[in-house]
Design a protein around this nucleic acid. Structure first.
Length: 586
RNA sequence: GACCCCAUCGUCUAGUCAGGUCAGGACGCCAGGUUUUCAUCCUGGAAACACGGGUUCGAAUCCCGUUGGGGUCGCCA
């Protein structure tokens, strides 16, 4: 490692640009780096959010700093406790912990709480009052509908919409009277005109021209602060020094700067990460699954809920409102009915699909950041040690699932066999209990073990084992070239007949004993070529040319089922040319 | 549309800040080889500095323009 980099790691403060030092740190002599992740608990934690959390966490941890988790639940309609808990679980699963925040497992607590914005309303109120008293903010009484109409008007005229400040013309008496009457009111920040320069540690500084920002709302009619207001107050009070967030927030930063100035707050350092995009270049969003489902439902002319899991009225509402998200189990069923694959978007999707958390972290960090020196595989400890804002990429990155899968495969194959087995079993019990309960522990162990070399995910041993659960008489034999080759050209049926007898007599019937008898047979009858006999057997017992090693495959099925399947395969003349009598070309 | 950001193989990227190696790696793809199937594994290959102007002895690298891509334009966050 270059000396300079080591030096940087040990003394990060020396390398900060002087101009970016915060002006009002609590104690300038011991500046503790503090980052935060502040999710809104609606829906699941998606990979973009997970990456932001991971990098924010690594940034603080690598500099002796603290990482804060704050729950931004100021949207009463969309926030839910279930979603919040899911996010905490997903973060912990990724190996991200937080020094301050909601208490969960061994994380959380802290002196700057509460860490739920919905519990900080009185704090926001103080600052709101302050701005009102100082004349820096004002009440406005337009309804959401009125504003929508004005926006639509402006749009039709091809003009950008800005709030017209009609409320500023109201006399103090009128405002007081309206408020006394209990008219719904929002509070808007009085925005001084003037251009705003956003400083950023990742992308270039940007100048937002004067007049771009209007008097935006800082407190909603329900009394809850808007995101902009809560975030600014909390970052100040919680001592956040560095804000890493997605580039979709870039312009919001100007609003936040305005608020910081109005409130007399210091300014954290900002770094805006590029967004992660889909193969079609659209922003990867937590709404993508619902988007795909809605599109498919419309295409199929589906107007009623096809499942009891989704009530009719809920379905109709969901179909109309693109902001609504189905629960995962509802989405899965609907996708099944519509015959589409749900895109993997959320951390939970990848967990369910059998990706390793350490691989996901590695890959997420690599999406938009690189340690250089052709290093690609690393763990979170390395990330903490090396992560640095000036190596972050500015351009949006596509999420390359093929590469993620390859990383996962590599990690699985490097894993000690016993670890792999344990993780597959845990995965099966959590996500496929109906599968797991069909087998004894011993069988499950073997299923995992014999699939290790060929698994790309923890889910593969399960998804590749359906032939074990199929009834003997329900095995479907496809008609394919490799099957015909093995059964007809390779004289498979003759080998089947021969081996059948050996297997019937075999005792005990284990992978080891099967291996002995099959290799012996191959030596004697097929010139040592095991494939000539293994493929017909594989086809006979699974219906396909692909399965775990043949000895394990047979051992897992057990003697009886193996014999029954061989018999049926032979009597169906699988892979042999059709009888001449078989009829009729169309 | 307006405002802002961005631009190296199909994809993720190294190289750009301090201009000077046939532009490096990985995933994917193609061709061989190993293997009881698949998956691995091994060998080889095709594959990029968006375009146009400058500056310079010299530009992927610096400047300008064009084009293209992304983000934002909510009483969502």
């Amino acid at each position: 490692m270059p000396v300079s980099r080591l030096h940087y790691r040990l003394t990060p403060a020396l390398h900060k640009r002087p101009g970016k030092r915060c002006t009002a740190m609590p104690d300038p002599d011991t500046p503790v780096i503090k980052t935060r992740f502040a999710p809104s608990p609606s829906g699941h934690l998606h990979v973009g959010g997970a990456r932001t959390a991971l990098l924010s966490w690594a940034y603080a941890k690598g500099r002796g700093g603290r990482f804060i988790l704050r729950i931004e639940d100021t949207d009463q309609k969309r926030s839910s406790r279930t979603a919040m808990e899911g996010m905490l679980r997903d973060l912990r699963w990724l190996g991200i912990d937080w020094d301050e925040g909601p208490e969960f497992e061994d994380c959380g607590g802290g002196d700057n709480g509460p860490y739920f914005q919905s519990e900080r309303l009185d704090i926001y109120q103080q600052y709101l009052d302050q701005l009102i008293v100082e004349g820096k903010a004002y009440y406005a009484f337009e309804t959401a509908e009125e504003l929508d109409a004005k926006r639509a008007d402006a749009r039709q005229r091809g003009e950008p919409y800005r709030y017209d400040r009609a409320a500023l013309d109201l006399s103090l008496e009128a405002v007081n009277q309206y408020r006394a009457e209990g008219r719904p009111a929002v509070i808007r920040l009085l925005v001084e005109s003037g251009e705003i320069t956003i400083h950023d540690e990742i992308v270039n500084d940007a100048i937002i021209p004067a007049g771009e920002l209007d008097d935006f709302i800082i407190c909603k009619a329900d009394g809850y602060p808007t995101y902009h207001f809560a975030v600014v107050v909390d970052d100040q009070l919680m001592g956040v020094t560095h804000v890493l967030r997605a580039q979709e927030h870039f312009k919001n930063t100007a609003k936040h700067m305005l608020l910081q100035d109005a409130l007399g707050f210091r300014r954290p350092t900002y770094g805006h990460l590029s967004v992660i995009i889909n193969p079609d270049n659209s922003k990867m969003s937590k709404r993508d699954k619902d988007k795909a489902l809605r599109a498919a439902a419309r295409e199929n002319g589906m107007t009623e809920s096809p499942t009891a899991l989704i009530p009719q009225d809920a379905f109709a509402a969901w179909l109309k409102n693109k902001d609504q998200q189905l629960e995962l189990n509802q989405a899965v069923v609907l996708a099944d009915v519509l015959g589409i694959e749900l895109p993997e978007i959320d951390v939970d999707d990848f967990r369910r699909s059998g990706y390793l958390p350490e691989v996901l972290c590695n890959f997420l960090a690599l999406n938009g950041w690189s340690p250089g020196q052709d290093i690609e595989k690393f763990d979170n400890a390395f990330l903490i040690e090396r992560f640095d804002l000036n190596r972050v990429n500015k351009a949006p990155a596509k999420f390359d699932r093929a590469k993620l899968l390859s990383f996962n495969l590599d990690a699985l194959s490097e894993m000690p066999e016993d670890d792999f087995v344990q993780r597959v079993l845990a995965h099966a019990r959590e996500f496929h209990p109906e599968f797991a309960e069909q087998f004894t522990d011993e069988q499950l162990d073997l299923i995992a073990r014999c699939n290790k070399a060929r698994s790309k995910t923890l889910n593969d041993p399960i998804s590749e084992s359906t032939f074990l659960l199929t009834a003997d008489e329900a095995i479907e034999y496809q008609d394919s070239k490799p099957i015909r080759k093995a059964m007809h050209k390779g004289d498979g049926h003759r080998h089947l007949a021969a081996v059948r007898g050996l297997l019937e007599a075999l005792d005990p019937f284990t992978a080891e004993s099967i291996e002995d008898v099959l290799t012996q047979y191959a030596q004697q009858h097929t010139d040592g070529k095991l494939g000539v006999v293994a493929q017909p057997l594989r086809i006979a017992v699974t219906g396909t040319t692909v399965s775990p090693p043949i000895y394990d495959t047979l051992a897992l099925l057990g003697r009886q089922r193996v014999l029954a399947r061989i018999d049926r395969c032979m009597s169906l003349r699988v892979g042999l040319p059709d009888e001449p009598i078989r009829s009729t070309e169309p």
